[in-house]
């Protein structure tokens, strides 16, 4: 294993531990928005897609990269907007109850 991979594994491990710690005691109403928001963050694959499509390469590679950008951008843009819509609803409901 190369030292680059080891360094990357350290980063992965620490981010995993951070991710496991950041979520606790989420009220049930927030389950779906939280899932949706973190799903939008996993659209970070868009960065990888940009690097694949952006770097010079075969047409086929650029096309695959471009499709990946489209898919990941739908994930990111749709994900954040949908989460925002859900949370807007949530706020209205809260005020109605109180």
């Amino acid at each position: 294993m190369s030292s680059t991979l080891i360094a990357a594994l350290f980063v992965f491990l620490l981010a995993t531990l951070a991710g496991a710690e950041v979520i606790n005691k989420v009220p049930p109403t927030l389950h779906t928005p939280l899932m949706s928001g973190s799903n939008a963050i996993s659209g970070i694959a868009v960065i990888g897609a940009l690097l694949v499509a952006g770097n010079p390469g075969d047409n086929l590679i650029t096309i695959l990269g471009a499709i990946a950008i489209v898919l990941a951008t739908i994930n990111v843009v749709g994900g954040f907007l949908v989460t925002d819509r859900m949370l807007q609803m949530f706020k209205k409901k809260e005020t109605k109850v109180s």
């Binding site: 991979l5 992965f12 981010a15 496991a20 990888g48």
Partner: peptide, 28 residues
């Protein structure tokens, strides 16, 4: 999956954000 793609490209932000979602997603 995003973190794995990050390992393929050796890109930190993919690895970090992917791992963050991967771990928090399991807890959720």
């Amino acid at each position: 999956a995003a973190a794995a793609a990050g390992f393929v490209l050796m890109n930190n932000i993919l690895i970090i954000a992917g791992a963050l979602v991967g771990a928090s997603g399991i807890i959720l």
